[in-house]
Amino acid sequence: MSTLGRAELEALIEEAMVDAYGGYEQRTGLFTMLEEHLDVPFTTALLGVEVTVRGVDLTPDGRIVALCSRGRVRRSIGILDLPLPSPAPEGVEWIEAYRHWAG
C-alpha cells in the first residue's frame, strides 16, 4: 500500500518520464530513477525467507526486477511482486511510483 497520494505519485512519474516516448522509454525512465535513488542493499522476506536486495535491473523483455540473494543463491524478482520491508529503504517512493504507473 502506497504511503504517497495519487498527486505525489503522478508527480514522480512525470519527473521520471520527461522526454520519454512510448512504454519502453517510460519504463526506462522509472528504472533510472529506481537505480539512482533506491538505497540498496536492504533485506526483505520472500516466502518467509530473508533475502538481501542488492540492486535493480531492466530485463531484455522490459521488466524491472530486484536482484535478490541469500548466501550463494541469486534470484531476480519482479519489482511489482517484491514485498517491501518495514521500515522501507530510502527511495521506496520510486517503487511505489512504478507500481502506480504499471497499474
Rank of each mutant, 00 (worst) to 15 (best):
M1L: 11
T3M: 14
L4F: 12
G5L: 03
A7M: 07
E8G: 10
L9A: 12
L9I: 07
L12E: 08
E15L: 13
M17L: 11
V18I: 15
V18A: 11
A20M: 05
Y21M: 12
G22C: 04
G22F: 01
Y24E: 11
Y24C: 02
E25C: 07
Q26L: 06
G29M: 12
G29E: 01
G29W: 06
G29K: 01
F31N: 02
M33R: 15
L34F: 05
L34Y: 04
E35H: 12
E36C: 14
H37Q: 08
L38Q: 05
V40E: 02
P41C: 00
F42P: 02
T43E: 15
T43R: 08
L47S: 11
L47P: 06
G48T: 09
V49K: 05
E50W: 06
V51Q: 01
V51S: 01
T52A: 13
T52N: 11
R54I: 04
V56M: 10
V56K: 00
V56Q: 00
D57T: 15
P60V: 11
G62H: 01
I64E: 03
I64G: 00
V65C: 06
V65G: 04
L67A: 14
C68P: 05
S69G: 13
R72V: 06
V73E: 09
R74M: 08
R74Y: 14
I77A: 11
I77Y: 04
I79E: 07
I79L: 06
L80D: 07
L80Y: 06
D81C: 15
P85R: 01
P85G: 03
S86R: 13
S86Q: 12
P87C: 09
P89W: 08
V92M: 01
E93C: 01
W94P: 04
I95N: 00
I95F: 06
I95V: 15
E96D: 14
A97T: 09
A97L: 04
R99I: 07
W101H: 03
A102N: 10
